[in-house]
Amino acid sequence: MRSAVFYWFMKYIVIGPVLKAVFRPWVVGREHVPASGAAILASNHLSFADSIFLPLMLDRRVSFLAKSEYFTGKGIKGWLTRLFFKGTGQLPIDRSGGKASEASLNTGLEVLGRGDLLGIYPEGTRSPDGVLYRGRTGIARMALEAKVPVVPVVMVDTDTMMPIGQKLPRIVRVGIVIGPPLDFSRYEGMENDRYILRSVTDEIMVALQRLGQQRYRDVYASTVKNQRPADRDGAPEADPRPEPAATGTR
């Protein structure tokens, strides 16, 4: 109860009114977000600001899985960051892989099990250059295990407002485009089939690419981030259409 009151206070009294007045965010397709019940909001990820504006512009509470470093900072800055992330409904996760990935999956399933909205960035990290990258299959596993729809969401111009590495935002109007929910009930009981998980994930990425018309590269964003700057333009591009689930080629 205390958490819900704090979230409401931050969204409608402290943060929300200021951000809406300054950045004048717009939304298309708000009606595609279910009025009740659990669902996953699958969004492209351009900026730190994505996790701020999407929950701000929806009537329902959205919980995002955020890297744990945002909750462990020291000093006044660390305290303010932690306060902000807790106040906007974000949940700390360890992104080191292995058992940490399983714990993150369980955290997301707990949110969905309560009938709430869970925000996920399928790319796994922010795009380093505004390109849409290959999705990680964790989102597919959550959708199939929880038996929930996936709503594609495209953030617009948040990278112009606050690029990676910039500390203060530019005054730019940002937008959100929300597409129709994707139903994966045809794959019920197949959440442990890696080919099915890849097929579902690719279908989500296709929906995001079509909705936002972003350029697409069929490599992971984390791989591109680890490349030397001079090598990034050489990353292979591909049509984002998913391969058949049972081809066995991946």
Score class of each variant (00 low, 15 high):
I164W: 00
D239R: 11
R61W: 09
P180K: 12
G124V: 02
M155F: 07
M1K: 09
I139H: 03
R30Q: 15
F85N: 14
T125P: 02
Q213K: 15
F48M: 07
I40L: 08
L19N: 09
N226Y: 02
A66N: 07
V148R: 05
D218I: 00
F53G: 07
A146W: 07
P128V: 01
G130L: 02
G98N: 08
S63Y: 12
S68K: 15
S104C: 12
G98S: 14
F71G: 05
T72V: 07
I139F: 04
V131C: 04
E123C: 01
G189C: 10
V148D: 03
G175W: 01
E69L: 06
S51P: 07
L182F: 04
T137F: 00
V174N: 00
F71D: 02
R250S: 13
A221N: 03
A146H: 08
A38S: 14
A238E: 10
K225G: 09
N106G: 00
R186H: 09
E110L: 10
I120R: 01
K77W: 04
R173A: 04
I176P: 02
H45D: 13
K11D: 02
P34Y: 06
L65D: 10
E69W: 06
D116H: 07
R228M: 11
G175M: 05
M10G: 05
A49E: 01
I176C: 07
G165W: 05
D218Y: 02
S36C: 04
L118V: 06
E31T: 05
F6C: 02
L144K: 06
P169S: 04
V14S: 08
L208V: 03
A49H: 05
V156Q: 07
S3V: 01
F53A: 12
A39P: 09
N226E: 13
Y216V: 06
A246Q: 11
D157A: 13
T81C: 08
F71M: 06
V18H: 09
L182T: 11
T249P: 00
P181S: 04
A39N: 09
I15S: 01
V111G: 00
G97P: 08
R126L: 01
